[in-house]
Design a protein around this nucleic acid. Structure first.
Lengths: 111, 111
DNA sequence: CATCAAGTTTGACAGCGGTCGTACTTCCGC
DNA sequence: GCGGAAGTACGACCGCTGTCAAACTTGATG
């Protein structure tokens, strides 16, 4: 397998593709966790209710949409949120989705 | 048929449902046209590449997600974007999707 | 080299959702 | 009341996508 998988440039970002990536709850959770982490996270470290192969599929979808950047460290694949680039392409979009309202509904206002 | 179809309240808005509504290009186009119109628009007045029954389906999806408000005027069904309420529930979301970047890609900056 | 850990790839499957056509309802105008 | 216009409801179809298991690749460790 290639060490560095293909990543789109900002100019190639496509809203349709980004939304299709973000509409899945599992993938949106990945983005949220990544946003909260402020540190690159390896695939295995995410809280996800799916099998490894499904997880791989989700990471690929996010990567191809431009939402995350992936690189290997040993056998671990690290994931970084491409925040700044997304903000450049679609200002406010990630902000709108990482808000507390967006994450947990309107019920809780803890923390 | 009921004259006033059911509309969710702001407190019932669900991000998942809203995103599922907005991920469809036809529906996003409806929202965009509605946002640009600044006037209520009847169903038949939209530019849509689908049949009437499919259009009905899309309007229903948007309505149930809370994105639009619908009411009858004669035999015509009028549609209004629930901008303020959406902004209240998910600040910045509609803004992010009605931007010129969001609408047409990065190429054009006309009008 | 042997072994294990971390992901990937492939193939298959199931369910959801966008699509249409047809039949139906409702309202307007004559 | 009649006919047409505007949507809706229903049923069917089909493709897409999220899911998994199993086999594989790659790298670290001893």
């Amino acid at each position: 397998m290639g060490r560095t998988p293909p990543h789109p440039e900002v100019s190639q970002f496509d809203l349709q593709q980004v939304l299709e990536a973000l509409v899945d709850p599992v993938r949106r959770s990945i983005v949220t966790q990544l946003d909260a982490a402020a540190e690159d996270v390896k695939c295995g470290a995410f809280d996800m209710p799916v099998s490894k192969s499904t997880a791989t599929h989700h990471f690929k979808t996010l990567r191809e949409a431009g939402l995350i950047r992936q690189y290997y460290v040993g056998t671990s694949r690290m994931n970084a949120l491409r925040r700044a680039e997304m903000d450049e392409a679609f200002p406010g979009l990630l902000d709108a989705l990482t808000t507390r309202q967006a994450r947990g509904g309107l019920a809780g206002h803890t923390g």
